[in-house]
């Protein structure tokens, strides 16, 4: 089974979904569901919640495929955004969540490099982001990763790392500024 996240192929599959080709959705699922599920598990914390959300995500992909504007390589970013938005909606709906343990926080520090990121198409972007995250201070990097990968709000980041809310907001803001400057340089 092909699992490579080939941008062009994904673009084409999405366009076929927009034309109501159910076989294209099946192929899209085979290619992308494991990566989207990984995102949902990380953000929602449990496998069951993540699998239910995955189902919602693919229904939404099917419903919204007509709105996908083809830009080379955008398909995965578009689908990841749908998955992340679904997870954020579920989290904000009051899903109980525990504060992260210290060991987990240490884990969030890592930017893992195994998996599909090894594919050449995403490898260069991955490397650039990794390099720019390394330049950030530890606290700024940790805040950005907890927000993006765990879906934590400012308040929950503050609680998890034991810092005042204002400090966390300032770290996030400065981290984002530095990240943008680095990635555009």
């Amino acid at each position: 089974m092909a699992t490579a996240l080939d941008g062009n192929e994904l673009d084409e599959l999405l366009e076929r979904c927009a034309r109501r080709d159910a076989e294209a959705l099946r192929a899209l699922y085979a290619r992308t569901a494991p990566q989207l599920l990984a995102i949902l598990v990380r953000m929602l914390g449990t496998r069951t919640a993540a699998e239910d959300a995955l189902q919602d995500v693919f229904i939404r992909i099917w419903q919204q495929a007509g709105q996908f504007a083809r830009v080379k390589g955008r398909a995965m970013a578009w689908m990841v955004a749908i998955a992340r938005n679904r997870a954020i909606d579920l989290q904000r709906a009051g899903r109980p969540s525990v504060l992260l343990e210290a060991a987990e926080l240490a884990g969030a520090e890592q930017m893992r490099v195994e998996g599909p990121a090894e594919h050449a198409e995403f490898g260069a972007a991955h490397e650039a982001l990794r390099r720019c995250l390394e330049i950030l201070g530890t606290a700024q990097r940790q805040c950005l990763l907890l927000a993006y990968q765990r879906g934590l709000t400012h308040e929950r980041i503050a609680l998890s790392i034991g810092q005042p809310l204002g400090t966390v907001k300032s770290w996030v803001r400065r981290g984002l500024q530095s990240l943008r400057a680095c990635m555009e340089s």
Binding site: L5, R42, E51, R112, F122, Q149
Partner: peptide, 25 residues
């Protein structure tokens, strides 16, 4: 979305339950 996408793609994939696709269908 594109700048941060590698952080999502860097996560190790998780295979969905085999029953999930029929439910989506």
């Amino acid at each position: 979305e594109e700048r941060l996408l590698p952080l999502s793609l860097a996560l190790a994939p998780v295979a969905p339950d085999a029953n999930r696709w029929p439910q989506i269908e």
